[in-house]
């Protein structure tokens, strides 16, 4: 059902556009893509998103843990956390556009503390991170639901035992919850990545339209531009084939590494958050990562 159109689509990517419609052009479209600085920006933004992935998984994971452990008001949180997820990205984008506008309330608040205004969505170095952050905010509710279901397989006796031993919250999370939920974590990793790479169009369209200076292009947005605005369907097809291959490789790597990890954690021991196993992260590339990730790396080195 989905594979046959996929073959047609990939086949299409080797043909020409416009006057060359229908004729085979070999790898011409792919060469053009890699020569296009915009497409290269889109690819490096994919790298950035993959780096942000651990954060996007950790947030719903932690919140789900709190709800599971019945922090005060957990019923209330359970209800409101899902709310952003049901809103259309266009509305979410519009809301954040207002908040982050140059003359918007965020800058006004900062201004009252004497901080000079920041052009949040107008600065090419900031905009991508901001949009990704808004995406995480808008979608963590979905992962939260998955995590909550995952807790059903958690052995409550183990949890009680750990608490009786006087384990701190951090220890409980590390030694009990993460090993038990390794499959759920794996699932959330893979689906969060897919969400980031294939469903940010709405936000990008409303918040930045790929700008400023083309800094917030993602393959998905690039495909839309080529297909709809530039009338280059075959080139768009080639770009989406590349997107498919990237997701396939990164996704299967995640599954494989997390699987291996999951099996090893059958033996009690410090597992760390499984995130560090990601190829991009182990490459030690991002010193801009949040402190939590560095902590996890240290844990892994110790393991």
């Amino acid at each position: 059902m989905r594979l046959y159109p996929l073959i047609l689509g990939v086949n299409f990517s080797f043909t020409g556009d416009g006057a060359q419609n229908g004729t085979a052009v070999g790898f011409g479209n792919y060469r053009e893509l890699f020569d296009d600085p915009l497409f290269r920006t889109a690819l490096s933004n994919v790298g950035l998103l993959v780096l942000l992935l651990p954060v996007a998984v950790a947030i719903p994971g932690l919140l789900a843990t709190f709800i599971y452990l019945k922090v005060p008001g957990h019923r209330f949180y359970r209800s409101v956390y899902f709310f952003p997820a049901v809103l259309s990205p266009v509305i979410v984008g519009a809301i954040f556009n207002l908040l982050l506008a140059f003359d918007g309330p965020l800058n006004a608040t900062l201004g009252s503390f004497g901080v000079s205004p920041v052009d949040w969505l107008g600065d090419p170095d900031l905009a991508m991170v901001i949009v990704a952050g808004v995406h995480i905010w808008a979608t963590f509710g979905m992962s939260l639901v998955v995590f909550l279901a995952g807790f059903a397989t958690l052995d409550a006796a183990l949890l009680d035992a750990a608490r009786m031993d006087g384990a701190s919250l951090r220890q409980v999370i590390r030694h009990v919850i993460i090993p038990s939920l390794s499959r759920t974590i794996q699932f959330v990793f893979v689906t969060t990545m897919i969400g980031m790479l294939t469903s940010m169009f709405g936000l990008l369209y409303v918040m930045t339209t790929g700008g400023p200076e083309g800094s917030t292009y993602l393959p998905e947005y690039y495909i839309w531009i080529q297909q709809g605005q530039m009338n280059r369907p075959a080139l768009a097809s080639a770009a989406s084939t590349i997107l498919f291959v990237i997701m396939l490789v990164v996704g299967l790597l995640q599954v494989k590494l997390l699987d291996a990890r999951g099996r090893r954690t059958d033996v009690p021991g410090p597992s760390g958050m499984v995130v560090g196993r990601h190829p991009h992260v182990t490459a030690r590339a991002g010193d801009d990562l949040p402190a939590a990730v560095h902590r996890q790396r240290r844990d892994e080195d110790a393991a």
């Binding site: 989905r2 996929l6 047609l8 689509g9 498919f244 996704g251």
Partner: peptide, 22 residues
């Protein structure tokens, strides 16, 4: 299972035009 996983990674844009035709 792997086939199923692979299906997860197909962006809708790749299959949109062929799908419309089918």
């Amino acid at each position: 299972f792997l086939g199923c996983l692979a299906g997860l990674f197909i962006p809708f844009q790749v299959i949109m035009v062929p799908l419309a035709r089918i």
